Simulated scan of single mutants.
Amino acid sequence: MREIVLDTETTGFDPQTGDRIVEIGAVELMGHVATGRTYHQYINPERSMPQGAFEIHGLGDEFLADKPKFAEVGRAFLEFIGDAKLVIHNAAFDIKFLNAELSWMKLPQIPWEQAIDTLEIARKRFPGSPASLDALCRRFNIDNTARTLHGALLDSEILAEVYLELIGGRQPDFGLSSANEGSDVSATTHWTPRPRSRPLPSRLTESEAAAHAEFISKLGGNPLWSKT
């Protein structure tokens, strides 16, 4: 199963009032295990970066000036995510911005049901507890010390770890699914050892067996382990 852990950074809170995406970061998972394949793109928002957004993201107008516009990278982004489930923290926010940008390009919208919202999962698992990404890192003892500023790719990598904890921890199949391809055994089958057709011969020497028997005979009280 392919999943994309995704994060965006924006100039503000509402694309309908002029805010735009300035960064996209994404991490690919296969079977809940990171493949090492990522997507990362800074984007020229075609507007000035508000002071508050600059303080959060550390991305200024000069840095973003020579970056591509969303219209130049939108198709490549859609190709990267494909039809994979999108794991996003507060998915409504990111999907809102992505769909706004895609709509201006007249490209297909991302269906809401394609998203998995880790914020919603966290609130259901830990009702009444803080559910921010930083709070979940503290809960699961995930190192986020590098997160001095919001960065889309770093946040996606951290969120991937949080997501795996939220769904019960990483459970890789160690490639068994491919090894068993074409067989009747699935990757989720619980393997159990079969009994040997012939018991292994005893490794005790005759002298060791005699010494043990002598030791048992001296215990007295008819011990259970002396019965055959």
Rank of each mutant, 00 (worst) to 15 (best):
A84W: 03
G128D: 02
D134V: 04
G168L: 13
R2L: 07
K69Q: 12
A211V: 10
P223F: 00
F80C: 06
V33S: 07
S48H: 05
I21S: 07
V185S: 06
A209W: 12
Q109S: 14
D94M: 01
I142V: 14
E28Y: 01
E206N: 13
G168W: 11
S103C: 09
A92F: 09
G220S: 08
P45E: 07
E79R: 10
I110Y: 01
P223C: 01
A115D: 09
M30I: 15
T10I: 11
T205N: 10
L219E: 07
T228P: 00
N180Y: 11
V5H: 02
R75F: 05
Q51F: 11
A213I: 10
G182D: 09
E161Y: 03
L86C: 03
I4D: 03
S156D: 07
Q41E: 00
I88M: 12
I56V: 15
A210V: 03
V185A: 12
C137T: 03
I116G: 08
D134R: 04
E23M: 06
L133F: 03
W104Y: 12
L153G: 09
H57P: 06
R138K: 15
A122E: 09
R147V: 08
K85A: 14
G60L: 00
I216W: 05
S129F: 08
V185E: 08
K69D: 00
A152L: 02
S103K: 14
P193T: 15
L119C: 11
I95S: 05
F80A: 03
I121R: 11
A92N: 14
A210Y: 03
P50R: 01
T8C: 12
E165D: 12
S183C: 02
G52I: 00
R20Q: 10
R147A: 07
R203V: 09
Q114M: 04
I4F: 08
K69S: 10
I158T: 05
V33K: 09
R125Q: 15
T35F: 05
N144D: 15
A135I: 07
K227N: 13
S129T: 11
S132Y: 00
F54H: 06
K96N: 14
N141E: 15
A34P: 13
G151A: 14
P127F: 01
E3M: 13
V5R: 02
G82Q: 04
T228H: 11
P45C: 01
N90W: 01
P223E: 00
G220N: 12
S226M: 06
N180V: 00
P15W: 07
E113G: 02
E113T: 14
V162I: 12
A26S: 01
F80W: 08
R37D: 13
R147Y: 02
L204F: 13
D7N: 12
S226F: 06
F54E: 05
H89K: 03
